[in-house]
Write a protein that binds this DNA or RNA. Structure first.
Lengths: 356, 356
DNA sequence: GCGCATCGCTTAATCGTTTTCGTATTATCA
DNA sequence: TGATAATACGAAAACGATTAAGCGATGCGC
């Protein structure tokens, strides 16, 4: 490990001079600077981050919180894509990403905040966790620049996918396709679920849709089995819906299965829409119509905001950034307008009809 | 940020004593140790990792290389699950995970190795990257304890999914279901592809299967469009296969689509098998029969090996660890034994038959 | 020629730890 | 009692960088 001292010895200058030359400070002669930089290059010098950190209190490292009880968000398409984009964004600016955790084999369990302070993270991004745990509250109050994803704390920057607009767009899309009997299987209770559900009701009202209570069901996120059951329940109604909205794309596939098991077809017999826009949804037939959240943009905005907070703490606004999604039009929602030569009919003609 | 100096002042001892007390060294009085630890607790002390690192040359931080040109492995189910497991494993032992990258906004681009040395990683896991780049070679030769996933370097520990056994099991499974005309769409050239392909040929030979050249096709990993085309090509053969093996599960779904577009059904008309065992494959009907790789075990073994290398460099074997997968039996492969009351027939009866 | 900036570099302190070596105190034993 | 050993603690150097302050040399205006 060649250090500045080694370079200073070789070049016959002091370490201070080396430091300044390498950091491109102004009070070093041109020629000296060149000599030093060349020597550093030749000797294979690279700065010791720990020493730099100790001295400057800057780590150029941001912590990312990404824990869930049972599974880490890594295995969740939505979060993984956001993280991927976040990673690119901060790396381009010279920051590294380290996962925040709570283990400490040698000293026993530590809190998230202690972990972050120990590591000297310049900032933290809270992407996926149980936002209601007191430890998280302690963390966001800890004074380290912080950005959260899809959750709002007082006085903390947040980047949120626009769930209100998203649900509005999705329901409106379905409405415009002629659907009047729309069921919504929503996810387990959370801030996100609340927004979507409220938006669903509001939009339904605006569109003049009347939604019977039995059309609103609950199924935990990403639980295909449960979505299957709820779908069956809806299909068994005296007056089943013509379209079902799901908490997420995974669940929508659970719906596909139930519908198929009943000998029905998507979208010919019943329409389905998901939420998220995970990759696979575009590769399975019938491709899923879903509200595609802009994960690339979400991650980018989290990263940019965080770095702004770090580098310009005074002038950076504490704000909530809202990122829009859009309806990805697959072919899981049929156009059922009166007499419409709809896709379902076209398909039926093409493939030949069977059951029902 | 309360430091040891603060504690020493409060307790009326030297910082050396504080350090020893906190590190549970033997040459400190019982009572003093208690006092110091209590004070540290009350004052909210936590060690400054940078200072510790500088002094001890240990970071308790491992670097993970996880880059691909176009997408990071994060968005890839297989790698994401491995990383998830790796993360748990090392965190339990008190290590953090930081992504290795190659940006350095302030000093220009750096090599992977420089980045690792700068950060002082105790070890590195190379999970997903272009193993043939010279920079990777430089990295693994850099003298930092290293474990690679699914790639073999000289004198470097590796954890490998058993592709030979995997393909053997999968093909044998398909054979046992009665299939004699088996096509294999393999992935783009790589060590992994080579193993699987070789194993495919060898196993076919052992089973007495003759595989016409036209049954062997190539399609890049996870490219559903390409898999679609290749599937079409196979279906257009004078004598199409009864079963198609795909490079991965994503591609298999591309196959599903082609088969469906032809008005055929999986598995009634043609059987399909994937590779990987990504989560969604178990939630789409017909559920995909696939070689499920044991991502949890793979990640765990990478983590354990790496920490052993770090903590016991002398006594830890440089070896290749092979992890077995297993055939996950979905219902995408039909039993086509002569006269078998197979699932396909059952399904046909149940659902009612249509086209073809 | 004198005062004063400017330039280019050095000295030395500092960040928060760890660790070696030394020393004062007490205990042990012949 | 005096020598020795064990115990408990402190002083100080070191890790590798940054940075404020200082200082000699040069150039410039008057």
């Amino acid at each position: 490990m060649v250090s500045m001292k080694d370079i200073s010895a070789v070049c016959g200058v002091s370490v201070a001079t080396v430091s300044k030359a390498l950091n491109d400070q102004s009070d070093i002669g041109k020629e000296t600077k060149r000599r030093i930089r060349q020597a550093a290059e030749e000797m294979g010098y690279f700065p010791n981050t720990a020493a730099k950190m100790l001295k400057t209190n800057r780590s150029y490292n941001v912590g990312v919180l990404f824990n869930h009880e049972d599974y880490s968000g890594l295995t969740h398409d939505y979060y993984a894509f956001v993280l991927d984009s976040l990673k690119r964004t901060v790396e381009e600016k010279g920051y590294d990403i380290t996962f925040i955790n709570t283990y400490k084999a040698r000293t026993g369990r530590t809190s998230y905040l202690e972990h972050c302070r120990s590591r000297g993270f310049d900032g933290i991004a809270i992407v996926c966790t149980d936002f209601y745990s007191p430890e998280i509250l302690q963390l966001v109050m800890g004074g380290i620049p912080t950005v959260t994803l899809d959750h709002l704390f007082n006085n903390v920057c947040a980047v949120m996918s626009n769930n209100v607009k998203g649900m509005e767009d999705l329901l409106t899309y379905v409405y415009n396709k002629g659907h009047r009997k729309v069921a919504y299987i929503h996810g387990a209770d959370s801030a996100v679920t609340q927004s979507r559900l409220a938006s669903f009701y509001r939009t339904a009202g605006q569109l003049g849709l009347s939604i019977p209570d039995e059309y609103i069901r609950m199924s935990p996120y990403r639980d295909t089995k449960s979505a299957y059951r709820e779908t069956m329940w809806l299909l068994n109604l005296k007056e089943p819906p013509t379209c079902i909205l799901y908490p997420d794309d995974f669940s929508a596939f659970g719906g596909y299965n139930a519908i198929q098991a009943r000998g029905l077809r998507v979208p010919d017999d019943i329409s389905v829409a998901g939420y998220d826009g995970i990759r696979i949804a575009r590769h399975i037939e019938p491709t899923l119509t879903t509200l595609r959240q802009d994960t690339a943009e979400l991650g980018r905005r989290v990263g940019e905001k965080l770095i702004n907070l770090i580098e310009h703490p005074k002038t950076t606004l504490i704000e909530t950034i809202v990122v829009e999604g859009h309806v990805f039009e697959g072919n899981s929602v049929a156009d059922i307008h009166e007499g419409a030569e709809d896709t379902a009919a076209k398909r039926r003609k093409h493939v030949g009809t069977d059951s029902i």
